[in-house]
Every structure is written in structure tokens, then in C-alpha cells.
Amino acid sequence: MKTIRCQIEKVTPFNDAVYQVLLKPETAFDFKAGQYLSVVMGEKDKRPFSIASAPNAELIELHIGAAISESYPMQVVERLKTSTHIDIEAPAGDAYLRSDSHRPRILIAGGTGFSYIKSIVEQQIANGETVNTKFYWGCRNEDAMYYQEIARKWHTENEWLEFIPTIEEVSETWQGKQANLLEQIKHDFISLNGYDIYIAGRFDMVGAARELFRELGVEEAHLYGDAFAFIK
């Protein structure tokens, strides 16, 4: 990884708990779709966030979930709001898109894990890939599904991609599944053998997903998620 100075272009809320951050690197750097960077808050304080933009994008996009005022991520948001520049370290992560694989793909995001999936889907589109892909995004309620619009657009414009939005607390206008994210996947699949699976979300969700997927015959060499490096 190298340290890169970035100009802070934009910090705007998607909703009351998630912020979109756009950064313009002063030095171009290469990364793979699905990798992450660390925001340098101090010499020994470097905080990781998935890169939401694809490698061909001009700006680096982050989605930071920060609902509580003094929380770990909100401290980053406040720094970004009050600064013109920030240092990042990038790239990092081994759960990047394997474009050379033609196995069907399952993409899974819990909450702001969507940022990780966004980079992967946008890279698939940029590459002209047509591998059959199912994308599950699970949230507590529809308000928490902060970028539903772009996910539904992917679904409409790309025959190879199916978007399956899943929430636990539905409204009268909701168009999607009402279920826990992992329960929905368990309902939809008898076996996960033969799939490439990419997953991001809270560590407890990702850990529970791995246990479920083992029951469904997942090939762990084809299960990608950087959280697994921390929850062995």
C-alpha cells in the first residue's frame, strides 16, 4: 500500500445514518474492484472503508455508515467535513472481483456493505461481462437501503443481473422481499456449490453467513469477503 493525498470533493448524507464521500487523489493509483482503502486519522490510526467506485472512475467514492455522534466512523466523517484534504492508504484486500472466472456469481451486501458490491457490479458492467449474477442487499428497512435507485437500474438495464432487495420491516409501498437476508438466501438455494460468492457487511453477519453457506456446500476457495481475515 502507498499513502496518497486526496482532495475532499464532497461529503453528503444519503440518509440520517450513511454518508457519501467523494475524494480526488492527487496521485493516480491502481486498485481492483472490491478492494478497500484506509483513511489516515493518525500515525497509528488508519480506518478501513470499501471503495465504492470502480477502478475506471475519476473520483474515489466511499459510503460511511455513521449514525452515532462520537462513533468510530462519525469521527472520520467529521474530519472529512472540516478538512480540504485527507491522506489515504491504498489499495488493500483480497476479496476483489475475479473477472477471469465464468462461474455464476452471488453478491451479498448487508447495509453499507453495498459499497463493496457497487464497485464489483460497476466493473462487471465496464468490462462488458455477462456472467449470471444474483445480488442480495439486506437492510433493516427501506430507508436504510440508501442507494436502491441505482441497484434497481442495474437490474433493469442488465439481463444477466438480478437484484433481490430484502428488508425486515416493510412498508405498504415496498417492492421486494420481507425477510432476514440470510434466511432469504437459505430459502432460495438448495446448494451453493458451483458459485463464486462475494460478501460484505457487519462481521457478525458475515460470520453467520459462512456457517450457513458451509451447510449449503459452499466451496470456500470461491467465497470472497475481507471480513474473513478478521473473524477466523
Results as ranks from 00 to 15, higher is better:
93 G>P: 09
132 N>C: 12
230 F>H: 13
197 I>T: 10
210 R>G: 01
40 V>H: 02
154 W>K: 00
41 M>F: 02
174 W>I: 02
118 K>S: 13
189 F>N: 06
47 R>D: 09
103 R>N: 11
34 G>P: 06
163 F>T: 04
22 L>F: 11
113 G>W: 04
131 V>Y: 09
68 I>G: 07
168 E>A: 14
176 G>C: 09
85 H>T: 14
227 A>E: 10
195 Y>I: 01
119 S>H: 05
115 S>T: 05
214 R>A: 08
18 V>G: 03
150 I>K: 10
176 G>M: 04
88 I>F: 02
164 I>H: 03
19 Y>D: 07
91 P>A: 12
170 V>P: 15
221 A>S: 15
172 E>D: 15
137 W>I: 09
170 V>Q: 13
76 V>H: 01
104 P>N: 10
114 F>R: 06
147 Y>P: 03
23 L>N: 09
182 L>S: 05
82 T>A: 14
17 A>D: 15
17 A>L: 09
133 T>L: 04
64 I>W: 03
189 F>H: 12
20 Q>G: 15
184 Q>S: 07
112 T>M: 02
223 L>G: 06
87 D>Y: 13
41 M>G: 03
64 I>V: 10
168 E>M: 09
111 G>P: 05
94 D>G: 14
227 A>I: 12
169 E>G: 00
152 R>P: 03
172 E>W: 00
105 R>G: 09
221 A>K: 14
